[in-house]
Write a protein that binds this DNA or RNA. Structure first.
Lengths: 106, 106
DNA sequence: AATTCATTTGCGCAAATTGCCAAATACGCA
DNA sequence: TGCGTATTTGGCAATTTGCGCAAATGAATT
């Protein structure tokens, strides 16, 4: 079993790195239910619009999102719904790390 | 569909962030075939052992690895083989980003 | 052409990350 | 106890990241 070639490791790492920020994960979750324009995203994500725009760029640069300009607005779309299927695995890591995430349903 | 709670986003992001480095991904790949002690890992990963040790800590801190001391050595183990099943999805992102990773088989 | 709305980019700053060297720690053995 | 091996940690410099403000860009409308 040969070692994974470095260029592939680099490429994978870029994708994971892009996902390694809570705001960007919030954006991914939001877009999982359909495309949105920046102003809609900005309404939901609490941060300066310039910051949101930069997070969107990061996600698009690694291929997770695509964008399309329509008239005045830019719509972003999740290219990779398979990402969300990974959360189960991630969550199992979280709990095994002894840092339980409490979800209180009231 | 309620927004994903922030603590959960934070927790997920930490895991992705830990995976967002090529050397750490190389370690994960190596450990996917079974546990190893630090010196074995160090032989394969080219970096200072202190650097390798720090990468191992990062992965362990988020729960991706566990470690056990046996005699003189510390063995690290992948707690989450499901991680590797995610590469297919990640690779699809990579190629759609128009940054093909060339795998030359000679 | 001038105005307005939507989005991106330049800038500066604080904080985090990375990597190596050297020193410290932990363990087994003579 | 003293030595050699295995691993972690402290410290430092260089680089990157994240954020908001303000300015710039692009498109539509008057």
């Amino acid at each position: 079993m040969p070692a994974t070639p470095k260029p592939l490791l680099d490429a994978r790492a870029k994708v994971f790195k892009a996902l390694g920020h809570p705001t960007r994960l919030a954006i991914v979750d939001l877009l999982a239910s359909g495309e949105r324009c920046v102003c809609e995203i900005d309404e939901i994500i609490e941060a300066d619009m310039s910051t949101v725009s930069r997070h969107l760029s990061v996600l698009r640069n690694v291929g997770l999102l695509s964008s399309e300009k329509r008239g005045n607005q830019v719509f972003y779309k999740l290219e990779c719904p398979c990402i969300t299927t990974f959360y189960g695995c991630v969550e199992s890591v979280i709990s095994s790390a002894g840092k339980p995430v409490q979800l209180i349903i009231t």
